[in-house]
Design a binder for these strands. Structure first.
Lengths: 210, 210
DNA sequence: CTAATTTTTGACCGCATGGCCAGGATTCAA
DNA sequence: TTGAATCCTGGCCATGCGGTCAAAAATTAG
């Protein structure tokens, strides 16, 4: 692994086992974090759960920080890809917004461990600067996506006049906030009901007034 | 400190210094966590920030777990007291709901460190069971309060028919979700705008239809 | 003022962690 | 087949953690 830096320069070589192990370890980390909690998810524990020696992680990742970074990345990428696919299939802005909300909840319900792990992790970004970066890298793209939907809905005349940025933050916030409670106590929250409520609510809140 | 258990039995004696130190340490812990992040907030670091020896914390608290527990408690109690005072001053259900949302954001804006610390902490409840307890002890009372407001609004005919539990989770979620983004990046979120948006949105979403 | 009690200190312990590395196994290229 | 590159192992280490303790300091009571 001397070539880690050069890798980007090279094209094909540095892979297969490398990529496979990385994926395997990242997935193992997610499930370990979700089931045991971040504080208990030491490199030793993750390695044990994956079924490899501890050194393997050090070999494929620069350190625990990079592992966690990759975990967060995988979590966001996977989620956003699913949502985006659903959104793109919708014909107009109101239905795209609806698809965004529904897809978010559908993906949550089908991938609980991902969100349990995410909640565990996102508290542990120590410095304010780290939080900023986390937000900029992970959260902003989501909001941006939403903002685009909202803005085009205004252009097409489907939506009333509002600040797209603020409403995007509100939509994203509502989804994440419900998700958070659901992560804490699965049975206290009825995801489907909340999704439906949010859909009708944001429909009312965005549609052009009579 | 042999009398820790008897304390409840005694009446006045076991206090002043004891209580003062406890408050001091809890507050110090909050500010250390908020500024350095939970992972960096060791007992040594907290003690240093407070300006006392490490042993003092062990002397006044059973352990780090109890400290964190007290921190979370203080955070919730303080927040809820503020919100409840505002809500109680409102004359009818729609205005109580509005007061709930506005008070939440107002308190956030005035106590940023509290929420930064809270977000740091709430990810680190390891076991699923710990999360359940956290949710049950801290979150449920909030939702319960909200549910009461909503239910009485339905009884009085101000609100349309909906599931109070679901809508309470939705309101709470929307507030917390926006708060979360604001914790990550203060400048990316305009709290006042989001508050206003949420107020009008939930007004639209709850009012009895024509 | 003195004796008893509460509070504080700073050194200390055992432990788990993240990271490191020498050497062995495996895979790959020629 | 053989030599080189890659991949993996298991043990090692320094670090920092939470927690404990004897003794010193401060406070209180008599």
């Amino acid at each position: 692994m001397r070539s880690k830096i050069i890798q980007d320069g090279q094209k094909k070589k540095a892979s297969f086992i490398e990529e496979a192990r990385r994926r395997q370890i990242v997935e193992g980390a997610i499930s370990t974090i979700a089931s045991a909690g971040l504080p208990q998810a030491s490199l030793a524990r993750i390695a044990q759960d994956v079924g490899v020696s501890k050194g393997v992680i050090s070999y494929h990742f620069a350190g625990k920080d990079e592992l966690i970074q990759q975990v967060v990345n995988a979590l966001f990428v996977e989620t956003n890809r699913f949502i985006k696919a659903r959104v793109d299939r919708a014909p107009d802005a109101p239905r795209r917004l609806r698809a965004f909300i529904e897809a978010s909840f559908e993906f949550m319900a089908a991938n609980r461990a991902n969100f349990v792990a995410l909640v565990d992790i996102w508290g542990s970004f120590g410095s304010p600067e780290a939080k900023r970066r986390f937000n900029a890298d992970m959260y902003d793209p989501c909001r941006h996506h939403l903002e685009g939907i909202l803005r085009r809905g205004q252009d097409s005349g489907d939506f009333r006049d509002f600040s797209p940025g603020t409403l995007a933050a509100t939509v994203q916030g509502a989804i994440d906030g419900v998700m958070l409670q659901w992560v804490f106590d699965e049975e206290a929250i009825d995801l489907a009901d909340c999704a439906a409520e949010l859909v009708t609510m944001f429909d009312l809140a965005t549609r052009r007034r009579a």
